[in-house]
Amino acid sequence: MRKKISIWLLAIPFIYACSGNQQQSKKSEKGEEQRQRFLSPPLIRSIYTADPSAHVFDGKIYIYPSHDIDAGTPENDNGEHFAMRDYHVLSMNDINGQVTDHGVALDVKDIPWAKQQLWAPDAAYKNGTYYLYFPAKDKNDIFRIGAATSTNPMGPFKALKEPIEGSYSMDPAVFIDDDENAYMYFGGIWGGQLQRWETDSYEANGSLTDLKQDDAPAISCRVAKLKANMIEFDGPVEKVLLVDSAGKPILGGDHNRRFFEGAWMHKYKGRYYFTYSTGDTHFLAYAIGNSPIGPFTYAGHFMKPVQGWTTHHSIIETEGKWYIFYHDTELSGKTHLRNVKVTELTHNPDGTLKMIDPFKIDSLSN
C-alpha cells in the first residue's frame, strides 16, 4: 500500500506506470497490433478508495475501503502521504449492481485514542452487532488497531475509547470460521511498523525494513483469536508460519514469496487460504493450511501487479461464485489516490487459484 516509489518505477514495466486514463498499443510476437486495457472498471469515481474489505451481510455486498485524499504530504518510505482521515461504506445489491456510497461511517476526530492515518480496515458481524476494525497511529505515532461498533452495516460506527489491547501494526482482517470462532490477522512491514515488534515490544529505532535479514525467516503476519465479544484477544498474539513445499520457512530475502502486508483469509472445501501482498514485488500470493492459525504452505501467485505501487484485496463468495476486490490507480495515475475494483476469482479443480491479470489485451488487427 505504501512506500518505495523509486523501486516501483524500476520494477514495474512501463505499461503499469502510465496514467490510468491511457491505453497502450504494442506489437505481438506475430506482428499483430494489440491494445492493453484494464480488466475491470472502478466501482466508484466520486471519491478515491483503496484496500477494499468486502463482505456479504444479509445477501447484500458491503465494501469497507480506506478513503484516499490528497493531503499534500510529501511521499516518504513511512507512507505518510497516505493520510486518510475517515471511512466510507459502499454497498451493492449484487456483484453487477450499482454501487452506493453511504458517506462517512467513522472519522479520525471521533476516535479518542487516534492521531492520524486511518489505513486499511475490515468489518465483521456477530450477534446483532457490526464491527469495524481499523489501524491508526496513536498519540505517539505508533500504529494500533481499534474497533468500532454499529447496529447497521453502513454505520455510523462508534469507536471504542482504547485500541484493542495487545494490537499493533496495520491491516486487520477478521475471519469467522464455521464453528463461530473468530480470528484477526494483522501486520505490515516498512511503514506498517511490524518489523519494530519482533521482540514483542515496540522498538522505536527498529530497522525500516527487513532487507538486512535475507537469510532469516521473513517477518510474519500476526494472528490472534478473538473473544466472543469480538473486541478483545483471547490468548497471545502468534506469528503466522509461512513455509515452502519442504516445510522450511520463507526467508526474508525471498521477496517474491514473503509476506509484506494485506492479509486475508477465506475457506474453500475445508482448507484455509491465507492470501497476502508481497509488497515491493507487487504480487498477490497465497498459501494453504489445514487450520486458521497455520502453518500455511506457499502455493503461488494469483494476481499479477496492478498499476500502482501494490494492491490490497479481499475475497468473498456470493451467488455461487468467488470474487476478489482490489485496487489500482486507473483514475488518478497517482500512487496515493486509488480506486477499488472487482473481478471473478477461480479455484482450479486441484485447489490452486487461477492467475488473474489486471490487464487484458485486445487485437487491433483486421
Rank of each mutant, 00 (worst) to 15 (best):
K3Q: 12
S6D: 11
W8C: 08
W8Y: 13
W8E: 07
I12G: 05
F14H: 13
F14S: 15
A17W: 07
G20E: 00
N21P: 01
Q22A: 11
K26H: 11
S40F: 09
P41T: 01
P41K: 07
P41R: 05
I44W: 08
I44G: 05
R45S: 14
Y48W: 14
T49Y: 13
D51I: 00
D51W: 05
P52T: 14
A54P: 01
H55W: 01
F57I: 05
D58A: 10
D58V: 03
I69E: 02
E75R: 12
E75G: 01
N76T: 02
D77L: 06
G79W: 14
G79K: 12
D101G: 03
H102F: 08
K109S: 11
L118G: 00
W119Q: 01
P135V: 01
D138F: 03
D141G: 03
I142K: 04
N152L: 04
E162C: 00
I164A: 03
A173D: 14
F175G: 04
I176V: 15
D177Y: 13
D178R: 06
D179M: 03
M184C: 10
G188W: 05
G191M: 01
G191E: 00
Q193D: 03
Q195R: 07
D210W: 03
L211H: 05
A216P: 02
A218V: 01
A218H: 07
I219Y: 04
S220C: 07
K225R: 15
M230G: 07
D234I: 10
D234W: 00
E238N: 11
V243H: 05
G252W: 04
G253A: 04
G253N: 08
F259H: 11
W264K: 13
H266Y: 12
K267V: 14
K269Q: 14
G270D: 05
F274C: 06
Y286H: 08
G294W: 05
P295K: 12
P295T: 03
T297A: 04
Y298M: 12
H301P: 14
M303Q: 14
P305W: 10
T310K: 07
H327D: 09
L331N: 03
S332Q: 07
G333F: 02
T335K: 00
K341Q: 13
T343W: 10
H347C: 11
P349V: 15
D357G: 03
F359T: 13
I361V: 15
I361A: 02
